[in-house]
Design a binder for these strands. Structure first.
Lengths: 163, 163
DNA sequence: GTGCATAACAGGATTTTTTTCTGAAATTTG
DNA sequence: CAAATTTCAGAAAAAAATCCTGTTATGCAC
């Protein structure tokens, strides 16, 4: 079988696991009025189909010396395919860069940067980002408040959701 | 005790759990040349101290009808405290808004939007974001490629990391 | 350095969960 | 409606989490 259509039970399981991946199959089953067996089978199948990509621990970034978060908007001087590729390859090596997206529109890249403080951010700009000669303009903005940061997605039962 | 200093063993455990929260204590122990007991105790303590906030399943967003990702930069018409608060409260209710940050600098808010396609994005703008009368200007850019998306952080042994 | 207090750890016992298996019930399909 | 397939419950086995005990290691005061 090479396609998978999520039903309501799958959706519920995914919603629960997106909130708390440590729920036992029994606990999930109780919420859905089932035993642990079908939960086990469904989770296993969704893993095999790549719907569930993995399970991770979420840390409090304020407690591991990453209090300062910024979005850094980067425009390159040049836009040949090779240039884009090599910028991308270099920038994602830096630990400060936790996310890097190649964007349409005004900016070529949006980076999410997580560092301990402004001094570290300055160091990142000077010693790392600006060292890449292809960088044109950079615009930095800092997160003052995280109003919402969902690592999961709200799910709905799809009309056609074969994967 | 009300402070916690992470040592090398804690750091290693956190690194491993950020990659794969399904590792057993025994497996982690083997990598660190310890039995499962100290791993169990340390993980439990780091949970109690809020260093580990939780465990979540990571889904493939392309397989759950959230293929289109955008960053939406919002400027408000007004900046009184109440206005900011109420915008924030309203915008985070929408399922399309998976992240919302109150920013310093040019934009007041950066939103990460995850939807199925451009039509849905258009719908979000017209029927939801633009309905909030306080919204001044909006600039949308779309993710063409996710070059890097780390949900965890690289950790280093801190000089002083009491929490 | 010595002794004391504390923290870290190994090993084992117990409980809980995962995982596998089997057959019955429900659903789908022709 | 009958056959095929899927979903599920229940039980059994294997593995993991959890708890406990005592020993070793570590840090600290003197």
């Amino acid at each position: 079988m090479h396609s998978y259509t999520l039903d309501e039970v799958d959706i519920k399981i995914l919603q629960l696991l997106q909130e708390n991946a440590r729920l036992t199959n029994k606990e999930i089953g109780e919420k859905l009025h089932k035993t642990s067996s079908p939960i086990f089978d469904r989770v296993k199948r969704m893993q095999e189909f790549g719907i569930i990509r993995g399970y991770i621990a979420v840390l409090d970034h304020t407690k591991i010396d990453r209090r300062t978060m910024a979005f850094t908007h980067v425009q390159l001087k040049d836009h040949s395919g090779d240039i884009l590729e090599s910028f991308e390859q270099e920038i994602i090596q830096f630990d400060e860069v936790v996310e890097c997206y190649h964007m349409s529109g005004q900016y070529d890249f949006i980076l999410r940067i997580a560092v301990s403080d402004l001094e570290s951010y300055h160091h990142f700009l000077m010693k790392k980002l600006f060292q890449l000669k292809i960088v044109g303009s950079v615009q930095s903005t800092f997160v003052m408040k995280e109003a919402k940061r969902d690592l999961g997605y709200k799910l709905t039962v799809p009309k056609r959701a074969a994967v």
